[in-house]
């Protein structure tokens, strides 16, 4: 029975199938919101008010001609999108969406917060390698920018994620969520950290104002310049799933997780991730792209010190609570 449940967990919910469907839904939600912010209509004709548009886009890409540059390393070039997709899908398994046992298991153990953070930073490496192996000038510039940006946002994000964990006295996502479910008022102490986490997540997802690695008007497609067809579809899917996982991680840590078993947990998950995605969309619509040097100095001058300040606040608060 446990094996069946594990298989269900891996492939149906919250594993592969759910992730694929929900991430395309999130992309539609993001696109529609972005369009409404801009007084446009957004996707409209595929399915009810265009809800199937992201799926249609991906199917279309799957059937497109797939070109590998002659000078690129073919095996690595082709393997990277699959690796990337596998990594973010794995990261999704650690979100405490539906835990059928409270025991320590393969998907919930002390320290899984760090594992998720690590798995979420791996796609950046994948992007870098993809850009580097494309042997295209624009892709190379994009790859260098990906890495430069990583040094900017990774530290503030990790620091921001740590502060609620310190308060909850646990490195396990489900325990952090349970702690805040028991003491919802303590969530207010983490508001600063929440803001930093949302901003750095935007940078991790490489969206405006941080879409520097694939800034269309500067370096064409950035790291994806040479990618086409199936591989590009995989990268698109990767970005969508990364957005869901990132939003889920923030919802777990800063918004008290997803209590209430299978169905209520699902509802909680959908609502909370959609709130985060709403914030991400609003930020994307309200800003213009900044330069790479501005991005790095912004994150080290403001985000990192603020994240440290947040940790100080938490430590002092913890002393009072004792």
């Amino acid at each position: 029975m446990d094996i069946l449940k594990t298989l269900l967990y891996l492939f149906v919910y919250p594993g592969l199938l759910f992730l694929l469907i929900y991430s395309t839904f999130c992309e539609w939600f993001d696109r529609k919101l972005y369009a409404r912010f801009q007084n446009r209509m957004g996707p409209l004709h595929t399915g009810q008010s265009g809800i199937l548009q992201p799926i249609a886009d991906i199917i279309k890409l799957l059937f497109k001609e797939d070109i590998v540059p002659e000078k690129a390393d073919k095996s690595i070039f082709s393997a990277l999108p699959v690796f990337g997709l596998a990594i973010v899908c794995t990261a999704a398994l650690y979100l405490p969406v539906w835990h059928y046992s409270t025991k320590v298991s393969f998907n919930s153990f002390p320290g899984d917060l760090i594992v998720v953070a690590f798995l979420l930073s791996l796609p950046t490496l994948i992007f870098f390698l993809a850009g580097w192996h494309s042997t295209n000038f624009f892709a190379t510039i994009g790859a260098v920018r990906v890495l430069t940006m990583l040094f900017g946002y990774e530290v503030p994000l990790l620091l921001a994620l740590l502060s609620p964990a310190i308060l909850a006295d646990s490195w396990r996502l489900s325990e952090i969520a349970a702690f805040y479910q028991a003491n919802p008022f303590l969530l207010l102490a983490n508001i600063l950290g929440f803001c930093i986490a949302v901003i750095t997540l935007q940078a991790k997802l490489e969206r405006v104002p941080f879409d520097i690695p694939h800034a269309e008007t500067e370096i064409v497609g950035g790291v994806f310049t040479e990618y086409s067809g199936k591989k590009l579809a995989f990268f698109r899917l990767l970005s969508d799933i990364e957005m869901v996982v990132g939003a889920g991680l923030i919802a777990t840590v800063f918004m008290a997780g997803f209590p209430g078993g299978l169905w209520w947990g699902l509802l909680n998950f959908v609502i909370k991730t959609m709130i985060v995605i709403f914030l991400l969309s609003a930020m994307r619509a309200a800003c213009s792209r900044i330069r790479i040097d501005q991005m790095v100095s912004f994150s080290w001058r403001y985000l990192a010190p603020l994240a440290v300040l947040q940790i100080f606040i938490i430590i002092i608060l913890k002393g009072f609570l004792r």
């Binding site: 409404r36 912010f37 007084n39 446009r40 209509m41 409209l44 609003a282 619509a285 309200a286 800003c287």
Partner: peptide, 21 residues
């Protein structure tokens, strides 16, 4: 900071400027 945000939120539920050609 976020000078554009009020305008964006105002337009969220407004009729779109584009038409379904």
């Amino acid at each position: 900071i976020l000078a554009f945000l009020p305008e964006l939120l105002k337009h969220l539920f407004r009729k779109t400027a584009t038409v379904d050609y």
